[in-house]
Write a protein that binds this DNA or RNA. Structure first.
Lengths: 228, 228
DNA sequence: GCGATGCTTCGGTTACGATCGAAGTATGAA
DNA sequence: TTCATACTTCGATCGTAACCGAAGCATCGC
């Protein structure tokens, strides 16, 4: 019976609603304090503190002390992928939390997934990159082409730098709202950073959603057209 | 706070040790009865029954009545992928259940992962297929080459038939014991079936491990050499 | 019909863990 | 120093869910 790694521990860690909410919030990539996380979990700070200790002991979270604050983040990208893949699974089973809330539409349009763009815009961007021949979709994987590399240089992304990191350049990540793939990996991160730097979009304080400015919206849609 | 799909439900379902053991056992691909699952979970049939009802209600399991038996399987491949990905994650964090048991070595050598070969042999097979040019590894994805298609025909696998199914032909699946990828998808399934049909290997009754016969072992190692 | 087997439902016990108030520690500000 | 903020630890409560014995259905073999 006792075969393989123990998934029950991790399941149990994610299985508590308060902890699940905190993890989902941290999938936004931002480092949050214990008090903020207590807020998203809907619990007091004392309770949050014990939850956070458990999550850290389980290897899901990392913390960084800074003054009297304690900032928590997901331990690494693997955690983010696990959470997102569970979200994709849950969405596919109809385990939606309840009726779409007021913030849902914005979240479905564009949101941050650890450090890259997800939602309708994320999926659109990848589709467009594939259609233009910048990225090859082979089997279930993604690879940047030479054309893609030069295209990216034009908008100010130096792929050479990215390659030097150990992290994969392109990675596909299943989008729970669109049920299709969007672009993750260091390139996904670089593209989102690029948009934020240019002022095309900005992150919101409380939510995972990404807000595009009217001008940014226009530029983005022009840069990543659909149907070719 | 209430953003996105509800992962807590699924986490909680997997988070119980008895349920986790049952799910892990079902990742073996075989349909098991409630009594058998009670055995792997280390609980009585009554308790198992309630667990199984919950897992079914949560969409993780499917059941099929047959006479007075009730056979349970994972609801679909997505569940299997979720379980395996959690195992991979857990293994990476050192959440190993405890000391390797007596059956561990066999399990690490070759085991079934839903419907394809995993473990050392599974990883070796994929490595060899890539080294021989039968499969292209592009980015994090896999694609069968023309050479691969003709190679497979020689050992009695008709790729054309496989293509007609909706399921992806090649898919990489992270191996929790080896921490590297092995081949999943319909091709992974076909290869394992092929070995079983030829009598090279057989499944065991109780465990997920795959036992190779001496002759099958020889043939397998010859067909999938390492180092080119 | 009968008993045996496989499974579910019911009822009651038990144990674990989530929760919060209160007190304790650490850091920063005044 | 003194106070305020951020967080953790302690202690106690409470609810839920896992668990099993016993009883209830369903199906098979005879």
């Amino acid at each position: 019976m006792k075969e393989g790694p123990d998934i029950a521990q991790i399941g149990a860690l994610i299985g508590d609603p308060a902890r699940a909410n905190m993890l989902a919030a941290l999938t936004g990539g931002r480092a949050l304090t214990a008090t903020e996380l207590a807020g998203v979990g809907g619990i007091t700070v004392q309770t949050a503190s014990t939850h956070l200790a458990k999550l850290e002991a389980g290897g899901l979270l990392a913390q960084r002390k800074q003054g009297r604050h304690r900032y928590f983040t997901l331990a690494d990208e693997a955690v983010a992928r696990l959470i997102e893949s569970m979200m994709g699974f849950a969405a596919g089973r109809g385990h939606l939390r309840h009726r779409p809330g007021p913030k849902e539409p914005a979240l479905r349009k564009a949101r941050i997934c650890y450090d890259h763009l997800a939602g309708d815009y994320g999926v659109r961007m990848l589709d467009s990159l594939i259609a233009s021949g910048a990225i090859d979709a082979v089997g279930d994987g993604l690879a940047l082409t030479e054309k893609g590399e030069s295209d990216l240089k034009c908008i100010g992304i130096d792929v050479g730098n990215l390659r030097s990191s150990r992290r994969p350049l392109c990675r596909s990540c299943l989008d729970w709202s669109e049920r299709r793939a969007h672009l993750a990996g260091s390139l996904g991160k670089a593209l989102l950073s690029n948009f934020l730097d240019k002022g095309w979009a900005r992150r919101t304080a409380e939510s995972r959603s990404i807000l595009f400015s009217p001008e940014g919206d226009r530029q983005f849609l022009k840069l990543f057209p659909v149907d070719g």
